[in-house]
Design a protein around this nucleic acid. Structure first.
Lengths: 218, 218
DNA sequence: CGTGGGATTGAAATCTATCAAGGGCTGTGG
DNA sequence: CCACAGCCCTTGATAGATTTCAATCCCACG
């Protein structure tokens, strides 16, 4: 967890954490409607979450990289609200929620940690609302690249060279664009020398220009 | 709170709740950057929350009606992440967060209640992501009307006749559309006899057709 | 009675979706 | 080793939806 905790408390949390077998690319960790019992932290690989509405329309709600926690949307119910699938071979920590609740009674600070994680999820979702509501195709793609870059660099990886774990179709679904528009946007950013693209390999040549474009609106 | 709680527990919660003076239309309850100390439940009137990015672009992140709780996005920090302003003269319950945290230690179920409220916020935000990402102007406007109708009827008000508390500009900002498009969409829905519009007064003539349009995608 | 903000409507411009074709890579099987 | 299918991605041309620009209306209010 990215937040400060007492060593003894971490030990106690560690005990209830279960480490599962690896999930293969395309395999579901769980599906909407499955019984809710745990939240999950990504250990390795990458994960996408998506929801499906009455009409079968799918919306990817987030991409999760190692260290990031998912599953908070299931707490209000007995079952999960969204589908979770691996984008590549991945491993996760399972954190059983009922045992977590018991533990929060013993470790008051732990409760706040989890409130904070949920609060961050809400903030991040609100940023995404702004992206979808106010930005054009370039702004949306640039915002995604910038976000991934930040998150990779927080994991001590290069902020300049990244391998996208998701397909163009996933990107388009997430950003509310067609794959053609995503592809064209990548090409345009490359032509302007802001990035180099080769399939899923992306090199960011000019972070400043990229950040400018993040704020480019409709 | 919309969830089951023990009467004695409700009393204890009631004691820490502060009832503030009314907030006038356009007045801020708090602003982004203000010290976070409380979450709020709307008692009467209506409230909008919005965030402002680096470039000054505003995004309305939600409209809140009586009985609905806001402010969860401030928990991860010492200060609030968004701005909160009244759409009309409104009253709110202030729920001081540190006292709430103490109380959750005494009332274990209370903690779950709050986790559930946050979880619902996340789910609702994810639905909104789908709306912005996958629906056209008609679908977005219809979805907002349907949502307001549901929420009014839960408050024992008519699901057919409603007075919009927000301006066309607010609707457009929230839905990622210009006011012109919002206006034209209202007019089109009226021409098809699905709704009657007179300024902020809306009558829903045909819920079935409205719900169909909710799922109309780009 | 004039003023100003919000709302509506029309016409043109712009962006993205759609339709269509083709490229590149991988894995499989002859 | 090569041919081929399948998938993902790219690119081009056209169509369609929404934005932009502009004019007007409406109504509350001073």
């Amino acid at each position: 967890m990215p937040l400060a905790m007492d060593v003894k408390d971490i030990d106690r949390l560690d005990k209830i954490i279960q480490r599962g077998r690896p999930i293969q690319s395309g395999e579901h960790l769980y599906r909407a409607g499955d019984v809710f019992s745990s939240i999950y932290a990504v250990r390795s690989g990458s994960i996408k979450t998506y929801l499906v509405d009455d009409e079968g329309v799918e919306q990817i709600t987030g991409f999760y990289l190692p260290g990031e926690v998912l599953g908070f949307d299931g707490i209000d119910n007995t079952d999960h609200g969204c589908n979770v699938v691996a984008l590549e071979t991945s491993t996760v920590c399972e954190i059983p929620f009922n045992r977590l609740e018991e533990l929060t009674l013993q470790i008051p600070t732990l409760q706040r940690h989890f409130s904070q994680l949920m609060s961050r999820q809400i903030k991040s979702d609100h940023q995404m609302l702004l992206t979808l509501s106010k930005k054009n195709a370039e702004g949306r793609v640039a915002t995604l690249l910038s976000s991934l870059s930040h998150r990779y660099s927080r994991r001590k990886l290069s902020p300049n060279a990244l391998r996208l774990p998701m397909s163009r179709m996933d990107i388009g679904n997430f950003l509310g664009l067609t794959i053609e528009t995503v592809s064209r946007t990548f090409s345009r950013l490359q032509k302007e020398n802001i990035i180099d693209v080769d399939g899923r390999e992306v090199v960011i040549n000019n972070h400043d220009r990229l950040n400018e474009i993040c704020h480019k609106n409709r």
